[in-house]
Simulated scan of single mutants.
Amino acid sequence: MIFAAILAGGIGNRMGNTKKPKQYLLLGEKPIIIHTIEKFFVNNKIEKIVVPCSNNWVNHTNDLIRQYIGETEKIVVIKGGNTRNESIMRAVDYLETNYSIDDNNKIITHDAVRPFISHRILEENIKYSKIHDACDTVIPATDTIVNSSNGEFIDSIPNRNKLFQGQTPQSFSLKKLKKLYNELSDDEKETLTDAANIFIKKGEKVFLINGEPLNIKITYTHDLKLANAILKEDLL
């Protein structure tokens, strides 16, 4: 079975002075998180969608799902963890508790604030997660990236042709993801930036799936303005 985890635990500090986390801000006529969940909800290959979010926002998230999507057993909202990866693991624990999990089960993890994921990206994550234990959605780096250890002077300039910008979804073998995560030390867990890094730290391969420039993450105020423009002009 294919499962999904829509990660909605962020508080959106970088969005500025807002009264709610960024995933609950309106994009067009619907909250950002609803746009995102809908992309997964209509895919009949996905058995269950788990939405880990802050405990204070569980009821509100459920209310939004009922309002915009309707009553459904396909989506469940749970209390997330203190970090991104803790939230993923809580989703994994929920699935293990409620389903008979084996080596064939996959979990597709996605940012709640990436509402423009395309059908093609989602389908390729489903396809290649059946072949590879870990997949990451990326786009080629278009700008030159500089490396600086002190933030004042350049240490090196890596070859841009070998650099990619990470997006989501990231898709994994559910059982192997949990196994590798539990093998990490507390110090290793603290340095994780995303779930794909769990596999990298354990020497496992991560397959690359082509993302898209419009698969943006809404982080700052100008991102929300851009997202509304994309929605208005129907650029998807």
Rank of each mutant, 00 (worst) to 15 (best):
I2K: 12
A4F: 00
A5R: 02
A5P: 00
I6Y: 07
L7N: 06
L7G: 09
L7S: 06
L7W: 06
G9W: 03
G9I: 08
G10Q: 09
R14E: 14
N17D: 14
P21T: 06
K22Y: 07
L25C: 09
L27N: 03
L27S: 05
E29N: 14
E29D: 15
I32F: 02
I32Y: 01
I34C: 04
T36Y: 04
I37E: 06
E38K: 13
E38N: 12
F40L: 11
V42D: 09
N44E: 15
K45I: 03
V51N: 06
C53F: 04
N56E: 14
N56Q: 13
N56P: 05
T61K: 07
D63R: 10
L64V: 02
R66V: 11
G70M: 02
K79Q: 14
G80K: 09
G80M: 11
R84H: 15
N85C: 11
M89F: 10
V92W: 07
L95K: 08
L95T: 09
T97S: 15
T97D: 14
Y99K: 08
Y99R: 08
S100P: 00
S100G: 06
D102I: 07
D103M: 08
D103T: 11
N104K: 13
N105A: 13
N105Y: 12
I108F: 06
T109V: 15
D111L: 05
A112Y: 02
V113I: 14
V113Q: 09
P115K: 01
S118G: 04
R120P: 00
E123K: 14
E123N: 15
E123Y: 14
N125G: 04
I126Y: 02
I126W: 04
A134T: 04
A134F: 08
V138E: 01
A141E: 13
T144F: 07
T144Y: 10
N147C: 12
I154M: 02
I154S: 03
D155I: 05
D155T: 10
S156Y: 12
P158R: 01
P158E: 02
K162R: 15
K162G: 13
L163I: 13
L163S: 05
F164P: 00
F164V: 12
G166H: 00
G166Y: 00
T168D: 09
P169D: 03
Q170E: 12
S171F: 00
S173T: 05
S173L: 04
L174E: 03
K179Q: 13
N182L: 10
E183G: 10
D186A: 11
D186L: 11
D187W: 02
D187I: 10
K189V: 05
E190G: 04
T191I: 11
L192Y: 01
A196S: 15
A196F: 10
N197P: 03
F199N: 01
F199A: 05
K205M: 12
V206C: 09
F207E: 10
F207W: 09
L208N: 07
L208P: 05
L208R: 12
I209W: 01
I209E: 03
G211Q: 06
P213L: 02
L214A: 06
N215C: 04
N215K: 01
I216R: 03
Y220G: 05
Y220F: 15
D223L: 04
A227K: 01
A227Q: 01
N228Y: 03
N228C: 04
E233H: 12
